[in-house]
Computed example of a mutant assay.
Amino acid sequence: MVADLIAERTAAPFAPAACPRLVVKVGSALLVDPAGAIRREWLASLVADVAGRVKAGQQVAIVSSGAIALGARRLGLAKGGRASLEDAQAAAATGQIALAGTWASLLHDHGLTAAQMLLTLDDLEDRRRYLNAAATLDRLLKLGVVPIINENDSVATEEIRFGDNDRLAARVAGAAMAGGVILLSDVDGLYTANPVTDPAATLIPRVEHIAAIEHMADRHSASGMGSGGMVAKVEAARIAVAAGAHLAIASGHGDHALARFAATGHGTIFVAATGAPARKAWLRGGLTARGTIHVDAGACAALKEGRSLLAAGATRVEGRFARGDLVVLAGPDARPIARGLAEYGDADAVLIVGRRSDEHEALLGYAPRSALVHRNHMALL
């Protein structure tokens, strides 16, 4: 009875009635076998599950890994195509055609249309490009199309890439205003310790405060195909829940993985925060902050009350940033407490840190702005 209640509590937030839009992420180790070929029968069972959800009224977007692994096999590249950035880019360009074609074919068998979206980090970090991507996703989903999304590895570099599709899925959920994200993986959830090395580790079915469990994640990837392990999944959860989307980690092994999760609820669910305005959700989910502004205890308390960051409450500035860039606001213990858009570049911010507002004009040589980071352009973490 207790197990049934836990299962219902875990899977219910992702059911079509509770979650009109869902993002499903599929890991490489599930979709591609060790020889680099698509597990077509397994994928066909997953597509049947997706079709069932669409028929029930749920709009579904897929974030699909696998392009590099598929391309590496076709090109005969060593180390699964990850020996160098150039190999990964070439493998991705080659494999993405096969990947998208397979998804499109299997969805077509159920009367569904697929669309392909390839995104880089900048597409979701730059506000204008983010809004463009969000508008495209919204239109596709309203048309009943199933978007197949992947990182554009053929052009992404180390500096402008997500590096794992877990965080990409969470960011896509924010852009699509989805209510849930399911990460189908080669692991079945978050454990109290690494289950590979600790037989006593137990599954955690529900997480309501991410900060309390971050130490339990490690970078182990059971398959060797992944690129982030549990650390990336916990970071994805942080992004998703801040945007108002529940996130589940569930095993994708075996046929009909989505249907099995719906029936058993076996996995870990990270419970979403209350819905935030779209701009606040975008700020919370940002991954490429240009700098950090440290604040004192008084400013920290003021920020938590919804006030702007004034220069008098700042203690020091790190990084190189321009006005309008995303920055992290850190408390006296150096822990991030908010993200926001800087009202000053770093050089001018340094001049006025810790100074009263009536001193700013003389220090800057021009009429000052009202805050270092305005509350309208800030989101608490």
Rank of each mutant, 00 (worst) to 15 (best):
M1D: 15
A3W: 08
R21E: 12
L22M: 13
V24C: 10
V24Q: 09
V26T: 08
A35P: 02
R39E: 10
E41R: 15
L46M: 06
A51G: 11
G52L: 04
G52W: 13
R53Y: 09
V54D: 13
V54E: 15
I68G: 02
I68P: 01
I68D: 14
A72D: 05
R73M: 03
R73W: 05
S84Y: 06
E86G: 00
E86K: 11
E86W: 13
D87Q: 12
D87P: 00
A88S: 13
A91Q: 07
G95P: 11
I97H: 15
L106T: 04
L106M: 12
L112E: 02
A115C: 10
D123I: 01
R127N: 06
L131F: 06
D138T: 10
R139K: 10
I149C: 09
E159F: 14
E159C: 11
G174V: 05
G179P: 14
G180R: 09
T197R: 01
A201K: 03
T202S: 10
I204R: 04
V207Q: 02
V207S: 02
E208C: 03
D218F: 14
M225Y: 13
G228L: 06
A232S: 13
V234E: 02
I239N: 09
L247Q: 06
I249A: 04
S251M: 10
H253E: 11
A263Y: 09
I269Q: 06
A276R: 15
A276F: 02
R279M: 08
W282V: 01
L283I: 14
A289I: 01
A299E: 01
A301F: 06
R307Q: 12
R307K: 12
A312P: 04
T315C: 13
E318N: 09
G319P: 10
L326Y: 09
V327H: 13
P336W: 08
P336M: 02
A342S: 10
D346M: 02
D348R: 05
V353D: 02
V353Y: 15
A362H: 14
H374W: 10
H374F: 01
L381G: 06
